[in-house]
Design a protein around this nucleic acid. Structure first.
Length: 240
DNA sequence: CCCTGATTCGC
DNA sequence: GCGAATCAGG
């Protein structure tokens, strides 16, 4: 992973918006582990952890030993680059758009939806805490959507034709080259100019045409005026 | 099971 | 510094 200014800016932004690490990872086409790891290294404020504070400031139990770790890390590491050729050949993800046309509601850019939800609070768009809370709630809501649809599908299940989707609710159940997100930002065009630039994603992350807006952002915001309007205010029909 | 974030530690 | 493996709670 090449941590450019843009990716770091996006990480920071998405992180502060309260998106889950996995969600951020999906947008950046990296794993949640990478997101968390980088966030820590950047000293980003930790968000409410689902687990208990394993380490209190002080050793209190003393017997806090549970050291079963590592099995064969190098093995998993080795396969890392092997799968990348999946989309390295001529086949790109061009059919994605066409196929996803009818199902994009439940699969395309879930975070984009999330991003504009907290904007429904016109009073305090600046307040970090409420915004983060709203974003978190929105994220939960976004997750609930596909889940609800899954439930509905289950309820109306036909005895004849049932295709067990198993998981991946965010991904269209239709045949599509399931995004091969392993795509470094290396090939993505980035602003030649140094300094702040709008990091609004254009296109689908991980696909060949993906790039960032690159326009001059509002001061203090990671997006330009146009995209900041979409990101922070107004719930509107957005078309890329 | 699924999800989440946190931590560890080989690279 | 990076991130997969792992842990651990909901």
């Amino acid at each position: 992973m090449e941590w450019t200014d843009e990716t770091i800016a996006r990480l920071r932004d998405l992180w502060s918006q309260g998106l889950s690490t996995a969600e951020i990872g999906r947008q950046l086409s990296i794993t949640k582990n990478a997101v968390v790891g980088k966030a820590h290294r950047l000293g980003l404020p930790p968000r409410p952890s689902p687990i208990r504070n394993r380490k209190t400031t002080d050793g209190e139990t003393g017997t806090t030993e549970a050291a079963p770790r590592r099995k064969s890390p190098s093995k998993a590491k080795a396969t890392e680059t092997a799968g990348s050729d999946l989309f390295a050949d001529g086949k790109d993800a061009s059919p994605v758009k066409a196929v996803s046309d009818g199902v994009e509601k439940i699969s395309e850019k879930p975070a984009a939806v999330v991003r504009k939800v907290p904007s429904v609070a016109p009073e305090a768009p600046k307040a970090p805490q409420p915004a983060a809370a709203a974003a978190a709630a929105a994220a939960a809501a976004a997750r609930a959507v596909p889940a609800a649809q899954k439930e509905t599908a289950a309820l109306h299940r036909e005895p004849a034709a049932v295709t067990p989707p198993k998981q991946e609710p965010r991904v269209a159940p239709v045949s599509r080259p399931a995004l091969p997100p392993r795509f470094s930002t290396a090939g993505i065009d980035r602003p030649t100019r140094r300094g702040p630039s709008c990091c609004w994603p254009i296109g689908d992350p991980g696909t060949p045409g993906f790039h960032f807006c690159g326009a001059t952002p509002l001061s203090g915001k990671p997006y330009c005026a146009e995209h900041a309007a979409i990101a922070y205010v107004k719930i509107r029909d957005r078309r890329d």
